[in-house]
Design a protein around this nucleic acid. Sequence first.
DNA 1: GTTTTAATTGACCGGCCGGTCAGTCAGTAA
DNA 2: TTACTGACTGACCGGCCGGTCAATTAAAAC
Lengths: 210, 210
Amino acid sequence: MNETTTLPKTRDAEQSRGRILDAAEALFLAEGFSRTALSRVAARAAVPKSLIFHYFPTKQALWEAVKLRRLEGFVSRQRELFRRGPVTIEELVASIRDYFALLRDDPAFIRLCARAGLEPGLNCARFDPELIGPFIARLEEAAARGLIRPGIEPVYLLALIIAAVTQWFEARDDFANWPGMPANATADPAYLETIIEVLLHGTLATGAAR
Amino acid sequence: MNETTTLPKTRDAEQSRGRILDAAEALFLAEGFSRTALSRVAARAAVPKSLIFHYFPTKQALWEAVKLRRLEGFVSRQRELFRRGPVTIEELVASIRDYFALLRDDPAFIRLCARAGLEPGLNCARFDPELIGPFIARLEEAAARGLIRPGIEPVYLLALIIAAVTQWFEARDDFANWPGMPANATADPAYLETIIEVLLHGTLATGAAR
DNA sequence: GTTTTAATTGACCGGCCGGTCAGTCAGTAA
DNA sequence: TTACTGACTGACCGGCCGGTCAATTAAAAC
């Protein structure tokens, strides 16, 4: 009967705020912004609804806060990953693997990107130009060194790489219905190896193949 | 003053239904399902709100009808396109070009896929297994004939191709912000040619390159 | 011309939901 | 003790929105 044991007895603003954000993130990602009633967010966070308005002026602001929190984590990891662009073939391959793992290990982020992309304003899928710029520059450098076959523009090559990885996770459930497509656990690495194989052989100048 | 001239005086069920579907599609795609009030759909279609319920039992049913109508058109064209899988290299390239053009010329469909993909139920991006099956079979045939380099599984290759094309249009606006990325009109064909180049050279067995 | 059918209309409703507000309560510093 | 701050609460509201209904009218069937 006494359910107050689960509730935090001590007043802890940070924790309360965090609980609200957790609940909101879960519900927003599961059912979308408009279909999530703040009353349900409050229920899930085990706080009265009005407490939400104590921390966030409006429902929209709560959504922004949710996005911001997720985005910060992702961007920092992404930045870490992309800071040094690839110079050698091995580094290029490693970058692809890292990015693949980044998305694979954070499935909620994919859904958040998809939801956010439909709305005006912040778009999580967007890479910072400062982030993507150096990466492209390194690719152009590699092209100048004759590593990449002439005629292949680095911008589009990078777009292709990112598209190949991103779309895999966005449409994984569709692909899963294809005849001959195994379960995720085995399809993930198989797809990764395949695209690396294709991209490398399709990109590298003849003679530079590993 | 007299604005009834724009309204259809004659009773035409099919036309009324069509107007409602048109208005609903435009608003649903622009703002999403939950955020679109039926009153606004009615206003845009220039019919009383209750007429919507004459044709569609519920708001959800209206959304399903919108999806179905778009999907039918797309699927029939897609089916037409994919019926005969590629046998020669030229046909494979032609398939990629066709699919690219299909998405490029129907931007609303992309957004519909994105919106629908977030909801349980019908998923537009999904290809029929009966549609994808023969296509994969042809690719496997080509692999058996030694046209495709060994070690490349046709399932993943096809996933890569579709991912490359689909994601380009889903994230075009993000890519547009990259340094060195031209406007859509010029980026579209350039990207298409690049991915064809990469995919072909990455896929074909040595000696089979065009 | 009469009957039947179906398209069309506007008035109306009940419930839900974002947001408000007037306060209470727990910690804290003097 | 007291005064004060800010976290916290629950009751409440106004409006919007999906959905209903009874009535009306144009077309079709006879």
